[in-house]
């Protein structure tokens, strides 16, 4: 039996994730400077990559911040290219790692994919900002500060929340189980 999402379902789940890229930051608005600290837009992109694969993760990573910038003005256009590059790498890396890593247990797969995607995203977006988007104005200290010091609550939130959300989605049968339990009767 094939345990995969259909293309139509992947497309619609990606659309829901893109919508969440706009709705979720609005839910965090009660907290000052929440965007930089809790990184709410990264959560749907990573989940989309993990659940739907790298192609849809890439689309969500690019379309999420762009649509949010156009519809809500956040992130501001000056920050947008760097952020879109970061989220695009998140989506691609999460999907690719989830396809590659198979430890036969859901949570190790999720954590390996998630941590690799986050680190890759931070490194590549830092390089893109330093070399392309803010060439000459972006330092190593600024990268460490923005990616890890200011955003540590957001990183913790991602590591705690994303595996829990994916597990909850599997449990509620909204996505197929990665390692379906074999029924004892037919073994």
């Amino acid at each position: 039996m094939k345990h995969q999402l259909s293309e139509v379902k992947c497309a619609v789940l990606t659309a829901a994730s893109i919508a969440l890229c706009i709705v979720l930051p609005m839910a965090f608005h009660a907290i000052p400077n929440a965007g930089n600290i809790f990184l709410p837009m990264h959560i749907p992109v990573l989940i989309c990559g993990l659940v739907c694969g790298w192609r849809y993760g890439l689309l969500c990573g690019i379309a999420g911040p762009v649509l949010s910038a156009v519809l809500t003005g956040m992130p501001p256009a000056a920050v947008l290219p760097g952020m879109a590059a970061e989220t695009a790498v998140f989506g691609v890396a999460a999907g690719f790692m989830m396809k590659t890593v198979h430890t036969k247990r859901l949570f190790p797969d999720l954590y390996i994919s998630l941590i690799t995607a986050i680190l890759l995203g931070k490194v590549i977006s830092g390089a893109a900002k330093a070399l392309i988007f803010s060439a000459g104005q972006y330092s190593m200290a600024a990268w460490v500060s923005a990616s890890f010091i200011t955003a540590w609550p957001g990183l913790l939130l991602q590591l705690a929340l994303i595996p829990a959300v994916v597990a909850a989605l599997e449990k509620s049968k909204l996505i197929p189980a990665r390692y379906p339990k074999k029924s004892g009767r037919f073994q």
Binding site: S6, A16, I47, L169, S172, L174
Partner: peptide, 19 residues
């Protein structure tokens, strides 16, 4: 935090129905 997981479940449930 308690808002985020239900929002995801609601969004994916709607997406599932639409698909």
């Amino acid at each position: 935090l308690p808002v985020v997981i239900p929002v995801f479940l609601a969004a994916f449930r709607r997406a599932d129905e639409l698909a």
